[in-house]
Design a protein around this nucleic acid. Structure first.
Lengths: 207, 207, 207, 207
DNA sequence: CATGAATGAGCATTCATTCAT
DNA sequence: TATGAATGAATGCTCATTCAT
């Protein structure tokens, strides 16, 4: 049993080892430069070994994406716990997403990459699994808003829709970071972001 | 000078010829299937000739992207002209962007292609040129809002910021189309979009 | 000794188990899709275990080939027993081979696989063993012809040679099935086959 | 025009160069060891260059096969011209095929390889083109037989079928060369071949 | 005996780009 | 100007075989 345990552990370790290499590569050279043989090289493993632990290149990316979403999720959770007022919690969530896009730019990029790509990368099953990680995040936003409604702070007939809109706005604005020096040239991006978040919160606050 | 003019004209003609081929290919087979030799074939030119008129494959894409932005711009203009009420105009703009993302998916894709790419494709000059096309669109939104304010219909201290937020929300929500069957499973995407647009308009309407 | 016997038996059992898996795979997906790990999976054994019972992938194929030859042999025997007239028996053998090539295409393919390969797969010993299975079949043909000669129905100075020619013709014609739609476009393949068999039988019949 | 001619010639030369390399490799290492990069190496060309002259690996093999069939065809023609008696011509054709299988074993092997392989290698169009080369050979056999019939030397109701049977027999017997040391151990292969050819010729000769 | 993790050579094909003519 | 032949790096993936446990 000790043997079995150790084996399972080692297997988990190898997976991490591979994901580490993939992440490193992805973050250093961009998604297009991540090749299986590259990963194998970084991980000091044979190419075949990669395929022993992951069915696909796709599956590796999916794992990384889930990692990222989980990280974001935990960041959001932490911030939520430090605030009690729903409006502060919403702002905190937005703040966490912004921080995530800066401090974990690489994870943010990979999540965005697949969300924005015109081509379909993941097979149905895998896609569902990934998206469910996103679901958890949406759920927090929703719960926060519902809690605000129950507390009589927020007022909104369609809290579910509003949550999605909230998240969509954050997402879209973070996407615009690229335009900082051109379209948004006279505008501080973070200011714009915070302004928007406030606007959204005001929009559901009881007056 | 007649000669010079003719030369310039011919050069412009060749460029169009190449872009026509590239566009045809892009629309018939998607962004991944556009290859230089494919373009050369369609344009009935040699591969090398393409490189005489465009430095890069990316430069061709950039030109197409501008086309797309121009098309979106003209669509928005048309809609604006058919409405006089600023709130209807804003809704119309949002509507136009949604339509564009569906009816001109290829252009929408190519625009996103560059916006999402973590690597910088273009030299500064080229990038600015493209982004300015986006600027024009943002300008319309801004003007519409300003006009609404002047008419006493809208109320907003930071019309510029609100315009960006408006556009960012649209943009982010359009990206969520991919999540239709998973995260958004119980939600009609267009309904969500329209709900959000209304919410935004309400947010700046005088009460 | 009981132990030894049991061991030998078990070893034989495992071999069958592996061959069963290999056969299943061969028949369900064709010769190119048979992989050792596939066999191991189907047989619910480890990959290494396969290599304990068979030196090679080729050795597995060889075993299957023998199976095929044995099957063909038994088919021929059955047909021979139902006919008494040598000329009918010969026709029956030919018929059996044709049927075999259609109904047991997978066995037919694997037999040809080794016969057509320009490289030598097997060590001498193995090769001989396989070819002897073919020998048995040739023997039946020969016996049939000899019997016909003894009965005064056939007339032939070189019955051994004729047998080989007989079999060679069948074999060659079965290969021509591939040409059905091109070279043989105006010809029904089975008709051609039967025509040829008759021609051969006529050639040794006493007139 | 001199330039154009030279260019066309050079293009033809490159094709030959590639086919030479492919043939060399095919003949030295067997069909499974022929890789595009191997061919490129032998031909001292870049991998991409191969694909400039041939669409496919398939197309290269097809070209080699046609080469072989053409060579066989010309051998047969030569022999036919040296004989006037149809029965000698038939024997000559058989002889030519045997010689071909020995002197041009490599070409013979490749033709056989594709004829015997259970999997389909060539797409419809390509297959037709190849098979038509085989058609030419069948045609000669047929013409020879028809000529013999007209001369009152041969007697046969189905000359077309007989031609195919004739060729099929040759083909099958040549295939059996592999069995020389096992199944055919007491038999000289060439003797068997000649015996069979005679038997076939006798079978259509008027008595 | 049995396992299954690890290997790494090997494959066909694509394509942006260059450059001699 | 215009051409198009030539390049070769790069890619995802498979699989027979080995070997430490």
């Amino acid at each position: 049993m000790g043997t079995q345990e150790r084996k399972a552990l080692e297997k988990q370790l190898r997976r991490s080892q591979i994901l580490d290499a993939a992440r490193l590569l992805l973050f250093s050279s961009g998604i297009d430069s991540v090749s299986i043989s590259g990963i194998a090289g970084k991980a000091e493993l044979g190419v075949g070994t990669i395929y022993f632990y992951f069915k696909n290149k796709e599956e590796i990316f999916a794992a990384l994406q889930e990692e990222g979403l989980d990280l974001l999720y935990s960041k959001i959770c932490k911030i939520i716990q430090n605030e009690t007022a729903p409006e502060k919690q919403l702002a905190g969530i937005a703040n966490a997403y912004y921080q995530f896009s800066e401090e974990n730019k690489n994870y943010f990029d990979i999540i965005n990459y697949f969300l924005s790509s015109p081509t379909v990368f993941f097979e149905q099953e895998l896609k569902q699994q990934i998206d469910m990680s996103g679901h958890k995040i949406l759920k927090i936003i929703q719960d926060t808003i519902l809690s605000g409604i129950h507390q009589g702070i927020f007022e909104e007939d369609a809290p579910g829709r509003f949550s999605m809109m909230f998240w969509g706005t954050l997402h879209g604005l973070l996407h615009f970071k690229k335009l900082e020096n051109t379209v948004l040239e006279n505008e501080n991006h973070l200011d714009l972001y915070e302004y928007s978040v406030n606007k959204l919160i005001e929009a559901i606050q009881c007056r």
